[in-house]
Amino acid sequence: MAETATFHYDVDARSVGFVIDEELYSLDAIYGAAYLFVDRCWLFLDRPADKQVQVRLRSKEAEPAGGTLDALAGEFANELLNQVLRLRIGDSTRSLREYTLARAFFGDDDGERPNIDDLLAELDAEELADDPLEIQVPWDTGS
């Protein structure tokens, strides 16, 4: 049976507010979730007590339609859980990722590995073979 996360929130005519325990949800997770709502809400963060963060999401609509604010609260809670997952995956894979990116951008060319121009030439050859209809000739390479 899946574990359950419980969130309490208050709601008024135009906003919803959470008090979040920083022991359960890191500041990075709280900031990350809040940021994704800046297009729809005004975000107000406060610290009502030690290790607690208050997040208030105030709708940019003067009179939000019925149910909108409760839906907003649900979305924010969901996103907070997703942010925790993102951070944990990021932390757990940090060294793997650092190795991969270092190898990609700064790795030694030992002469055995094909260089990027070889790979591109190989791809071009494959693509030509796979393009019986010759559909695309690019002309615009930017802006």
Partner: peptide
Amino acid sequence: MKTIELPR
């Protein structure tokens, strides 16, 4: 105060 319960 309202409550939401979500699967973690």
